[in-house]
Simulated assay, not measured.
Amino acid sequence: MNSPEPSVAAQNTPPPGRGRWVVVLLAAMLLTLLGLFWLYLEAVNASLWGFGPRELAIAQYTPKDVVGDLGGMKVVIPRGVAELVEYDDDPTWGEKRKGPRPVRTFDSRLASFGFYVRYPDGATFADPEMRKDYEKYGTRERAFNHGIRGGDLWLRPGVSSGKFYSRDGFLDRISVKLDAPIGRPWWQKFDKLPHKEHGLTVYRVKGIEAELADPQKKLDFMVKDVYIHRDKTGKVKTYIDCHPKEWHSSACKQSWSLEDDGVHAEVYVAYGPEKRKNWREIQKMITQTLLGFRAAPNGDASSTEPALKNL
């Protein structure tokens, strides 16, 4: 006699324990996604500000002056000014420090830090009252969650040196793609525009005229107009890229080198496109602030007039 066929309900009933494992699997996937999202936020934090892991933020509120070697220049940065300070021997992502935190001296090579500076007067948080002025424009949490805030006078430059420095002449190497598009992706193929803007040579991605003319058309986030300032010898002194349509408060990023001032460091700052016309003054102000951290022979900060050549 043939065995009776199992009922439809019996056929669709999962074996004992299968439902529990499905729940466990879904929970594990959720935890994995949450972990990846956390790592994404950490990466956004680093890419937005250009600084190291969150644990390196302990220098953000240090009660002491920051001392070290900034690309060959001995510096004393007044307490409260430099934030998220990283030295060459600090642990990298996912690493823990081995041994006690070293005592920092003028031989300690700085790798990166950021600071706030008010445009156009160059005020910093060396004056505690300036922090109150900055806070008028919103909280640090708002700045992180919504990008660099527009409508205020404060800029947040970043500095890379030491192990993060790309060697002298890095701006010229970056700029090669502007005039040598062969083999590059479409968003790195440019037309040189016939007229300068605020003393800057302008390069625009090929073939985007129709998208620019249509106010409803969105452009890929990788599309950037590039603005270049070269000196009389053709050396690139300033490199700015801006999204041509995203008119938000951090649409432009300006980069330059301190190598002509004898300091092997890159400086960069983000701002809204309305400030692009002030690129010379911004670069001079931030450069002068940084060179003003130079330590005098007695260990104090020394006000040093920057070279600011060919700007």
Rank of each mutant, 00 (worst) to 15 (best):
L200N: 12
W49V: 15
K277P: 09
T287G: 02
G68S: 10
L84E: 15
P194T: 03
L291T: 05
G114W: 05
E129Y: 07
P157L: 11
E211Q: 14
W93F: 12
P157Y: 03
P4I: 09
D168A: 09
I228H: 03
N2E: 08
K163V: 12
A143N: 08
R101F: 03
A265N: 04
G234M: 13
N298L: 02
F106D: 01
I208R: 03
P63W: 04
Y61N: 09
P63Q: 14
N278A: 14
D231T: 05
G199E: 15
A111C: 01
T233H: 08
A210V: 12
L110A: 01
L48N: 06
V76G: 00
R18V: 14
Y116S: 03
L219I: 13
N2Y: 05
M285R: 01
T238H: 12
Q188P: 03
V67R: 10
T201D: 03
P53H: 14
L308P: 00
A28V: 15
K189W: 02
G150D: 11
H198G: 09
A251F: 09
G262T: 14
T92F: 10
D65R: 04
P185G: 12
K96H: 08
V22L: 09
K206T: 09
I77A: 04
V103H: 08
G272I: 01
A46F: 10
F144Q: 11
A10P: 01
E281F: 04
E135V: 13
P16W: 11
L212C: 01
F51R: 05
Q216H: 07
P6D: 04
T124N: 10
G17C: 13
Q288H: 11
V205K: 11
F106K: 08
S112I: 02
A126T: 06
R230A: 06
